[in-house]
Amino acid sequence: MRIKNLWAALLIATPLTFMAIFFLVPFLVTLIVSFQTAEGAWSLVNYYRIVADSYYPLVLFNTLKLSLIATIASFLIGYPIAYYIVNVVKKRLTRRMLYILVIMPLFTSNIVRSFGWLILLGRQGLVNTALVNTGLIDRPIPILFTDLSVVIGLTYILVPFMVLTIASVLQTIDKSLTEASLDLGCSRMATFFRITLPLSLPGVIAGSLIVFTLSVSAYVVPAIMGGGKVVVMAMPIFDQYGALFDYNFGAALAVGLLTVTLLLITLYLIFIERRPGGRQVGQP
């Protein structure tokens, strides 16, 4: 019995040690540095600079806005894909191939995929050319280097996370529940909204949290597809560290972004917990 407890302790200690070394310690260092000046004195001046300058709150708001839109878009695209793979496709081999197609873009660098979208969304790109040829527009419209292009890039890159998370929950739903609903006279649409969707909410919640947090911290996609015209919080943080070498202010920006993100996630989870039937959402 003691040997089993020892092995259990070692299994738990290994990931905890890894998290402490590579996450907790760097975060504590960043937190401490954010409360110091360049001379090493303790001060709140870095956080005061964030609040006093209207530029950074606006950038933070734009970051959260784009992340929220990308999360919603990922859900609207990812849920039908996950539902189709789990509930429509019957052959196991076909289902596995579809999963491979979903995760295949993850094998390519975000930089390469972002440059691919530059070609597609350019004024002479495939999208504008198709819209002009079909008569929907008279001249090419500016899509690149806008909020829309950043949302498109983030959604394309993060949809696989939403699909896989939702699909993992859809697979656990007892098919007899939907069959009973149909047998009792409910339409397929009513069955979906009354049974399938509520039971799959844990996957939707987990997927939305993953997509939102990855969107908030994204740098490559906004930097490339925003063209410098769309600024998110990751950019000034990188500039403070990589260009201006103001590590104290950069740390304050990073801690501020993390704090606001955690606060929003906490409020989101509280809202889900307190909504009618919310306690049943997270239960298997």
Rank of each mutant, 00 (worst) to 15 (best):
V260F: 06
L258E: 00
A82I: 06
V232Y: 01
I119S: 06
V230N: 01
M189P: 07
S217Q: 04
T146C: 10
F145K: 05
G40L: 07
V232M: 14
I237Y: 04
G40E: 12
K91N: 15
V159W: 03
M189T: 15
G122R: 01
V216T: 02
I81K: 07
A218R: 01
G282Y: 11
L101R: 09
V51I: 15
P142S: 13
S215P: 04
R274M: 08
S67F: 07
D246S: 03
L158Q: 08
D183S: 14
I12T: 15
N5E: 14
N62V: 06
S215A: 15
V159D: 01
L244W: 11
V220L: 07
E39K: 15
L263Q: 00
L136M: 15
E39L: 11
K90H: 15
T63K: 05
F145C: 11
L64K: 01
Q280E: 13
I157H: 03
A254D: 04
F23Y: 12
P284S: 14
L144I: 09
A252G: 03
D239C: 00
P142T: 13
V230Y: 08
L28W: 11
V89E: 09
Y219P: 01
S217T: 07
L98V: 08
V169E: 12
D183T: 12
V88E: 15
G122V: 00
L131I: 03
I270V: 13
V216F: 00
L126N: 02
F161H: 07
L197D: 10
L199D: 06
L197S: 04
F18T: 12
L76K: 08
